[in-house]
């Protein structure tokens, strides 16, 4: 049996390797490497554009008003896929809440008779709790910075949200969130749904033209600043709906991942004490 699996793995990887050998040669990208440099500063320009990537490099900054080409691809050109990815996270959070529901409702958490100190080995240390609280604020501010500047500099909703959720993990291991677990989960769940509803609401807001259309870009007063082509200092009020989508995803990822952390933390606490 072990021999068969080894042979199968070798065959599959040989298969993939043969495929890689037939790719176009390394060092010669499919598109045009100098696509970014020879370009008029305004308007859509498709000269020399032969594949999708070239179009993004050449027109992404001007068309969406976002300095971060990755953000313009993720939230504008392929915004529908991002909606799907955000939905995947939402589904994972819902599944974990559903599957661990019996753990969370079990007696050892809810019953008032059992002292809480026996459920969680609580460390009563002022240094740890106060230090964790200070770090919490700093990590949260860094995460918010990443989310808000998603369309200007590297970062964005997913990254900033994950950074913020790591702050929740810090609070958990320094035993801040041990009481009122059901209420915490309800609040987190509410804000997670709210973030996603903002995302899809922005999509529906543009449905006069098309779903997820960037209706705020190109010269409106809200987030519609037309930015100059090439290197520039970066403008927060540009890129249309991109900052809003980034913010929505940031809210969703922060509260969703926090919900997963809180749920798994309490479920593992129950299991250890059974």
């Amino acid at each position: 049996m072990r021999l068969i699996s080894v042979v199968a793995i070798v065959v599959i990887f040989g298969f993939i390797f043969v495929g890689i050998l037939h790719l176009h040669p390394i060092g010669e990208p499919v598109g045009n490497p100098r696509i970014l440099y020879e370009r008029p500063p305004l308007g859509i320009d498709t000269q020399g554009v032969t594949i999708m990537d070239d179009y993004f490099l050449r027109n992404g900054q001007v068309e969406t008003g976002s300095n971060n080409i990755v953000a313009s691809i993720v939230f504008d050109y392929r915004g529908f896929d991002t909606l799907g990815e955000a939905t995947v996270l939402f589904i994972v959070v819902s599944s974990i809440s559903m599957l661990f529901f019996t753990f969370l409702k079990s007696k050892s958490i809810v019953s008032a008779g059992v002292p809480r100190a026996r459920q969680f080995p609580r460390i009563e240390s002022r240094i740890i709790t106060f230090g964790a609280f200070l770090m919490y604020i700093m990590i949260l501010s860094f995460g918010i910075y990443l989310v808000v500047h998603g369309h200007v500099s590297p970062g964005g909703g997913f990254q900033g949200g994950s950074v913020m959720a790591s702050a929740t993990a810090l609070l958990l291991i320094s035993f801040y969130i041990t009481r009122h677990m059901q209420r915490t989960r309800k609040i987190f769940s509410f804000f997670e749904s709210l973030g996603l509803t903002i995302f899809i609401g922005m999509g529906f807001a543009g449905i006069g033209i098309s779903f997820l259309y960037n209706f705020l870009a190109h010269g409106t007063t809200v987030f519609g600043k037309i930015i100059p082509f090439g290197p520039n200092p970066g403008y927060l009020i540009s890129a249309g709906i991109l900052p809003w989508l980034s913010l929505a995803v940031g809210i969703e990822v922060f509260f969703g991942l926090s919900l997963i952390l809180v749920t798994l933390f309490h479920a593992s606490g129950v299991k250890n004490n059974l």
Partner: peptide, 16 residues
């Protein structure tokens, strides 16, 4: 697009 967007927006609001 509505065939996907309508179930999704309802699913997002269902927890609330």
């Amino acid at each position: 697009v509505l065939l996907v967007a309508i179930p999704l927006v309802v699913a997002f609001m269902l927890p609330i």
